[in-house]
Simulated assay, not measured.
Amino acid sequence: MDPKQEATLSYALLTDPARADICRALLEAGEDGMPAADLAAAVGLNLRRAGRIFQELLQADIVALTVRDRQVCYSLKARREIRQALGYIEDSGLLS
């Protein structure tokens, strides 16, 4: 996939409020990210729904998965770019 297609996919993914909330929570969590269960709870989703979103964000190469202390943890791969994308989407009124 070329960079323009990747950027379009990232913007499309981030226009979903639940995905955007997860990315915002990961921005606040810092570079180490946070455990999946804590992340789901922080954005008010059950773990099953959050798991589907985590999978979508993994496939889009937006988040990274690591295992720490027997917990699945997620972190953002391109924090600065995601922050900018979320800002653009919010300012443009694209967030549904």
Rank of each mutant, 00 (worst) to 15 (best):
M1F: 10
D2N: 15
D2Y: 01
D2M: 04
D2L: 02
P3F: 05
K4E: 05
Q5E: 15
Q5S: 15
A7Y: 01
T8F: 03
T8R: 07
L9A: 13
L9R: 14
L9K: 08
L9F: 01
L9N: 05
S10V: 13
Y11H: 12
Y11Q: 06
Y11T: 06
A12P: 00
L13F: 03
L13Y: 00
L14K: 00
T15G: 01
T15V: 14
D16P: 01
D16R: 09
P17R: 07
P17M: 01
A18T: 07
R19C: 08
R19K: 13
A20V: 02
A20R: 08
D21K: 13
I22N: 03
R24W: 03
R24Y: 02
R24V: 11
A25G: 07
A25D: 02
A25E: 13
L26M: 11
L26Q: 11
L27G: 06
L27I: 15
L27P: 07
L27H: 08
A29R: 02
A29E: 03
G30P: 09
E31I: 08
E31Q: 14
E31P: 06
E31M: 12
D32R: 15
G33D: 05
G33T: 11
G33C: 09
M34E: 12
M34S: 09
M34N: 02
M34P: 01
M34G: 04
P35Y: 04
A36H: 15
A36K: 14
A37F: 07
A37D: 14
D38I: 01
D38T: 09
L39T: 11
L39N: 08
L39C: 12
L39S: 12
A40C: 12
A41H: 10
A41G: 05
A41L: 12
A42E: 10
V43G: 11
G44M: 11
G44F: 10
G44T: 13
G44P: 06
L45M: 14
N46G: 06
L47N: 12
L47I: 14
R48G: 05
R48L: 11
R49I: 06
A50L: 09
A50E: 10
A50K: 08
G51L: 06
G51A: 05
G51P: 06
G51R: 04
G51K: 05
R52T: 09
I53P: 00
F54M: 12
F54A: 14
Q55V: 08
L57G: 03
L58C: 04
A60M: 02
I62S: 02
V63Y: 01
V63D: 02
V63L: 05
A64Y: 00
A64Q: 09
L65M: 13
L65R: 15
T66E: 15
V67R: 13
V67W: 04
R68K: 11
R68I: 06
R68Y: 03
D69M: 03
D69T: 06
R70I: 03
R70E: 11
Q71I: 00
Q71G: 00
C73Y: 01
Y74N: 03
Y74A: 13
Y74H: 14
Y74V: 04
S75N: 04
R79S: 07
R80W: 00
E81R: 07
I82K: 03
I82Y: 00
Q84H: 07
A85S: 15
L86W: 06
L86C: 13
L86N: 08
L86R: 07
G87D: 15
G87P: 05
G87C: 11
G87S: 14
I89S: 06
G93I: 10
G93A: 08
G93E: 07
L94I: 04
L95D: 02
S96Q: 10
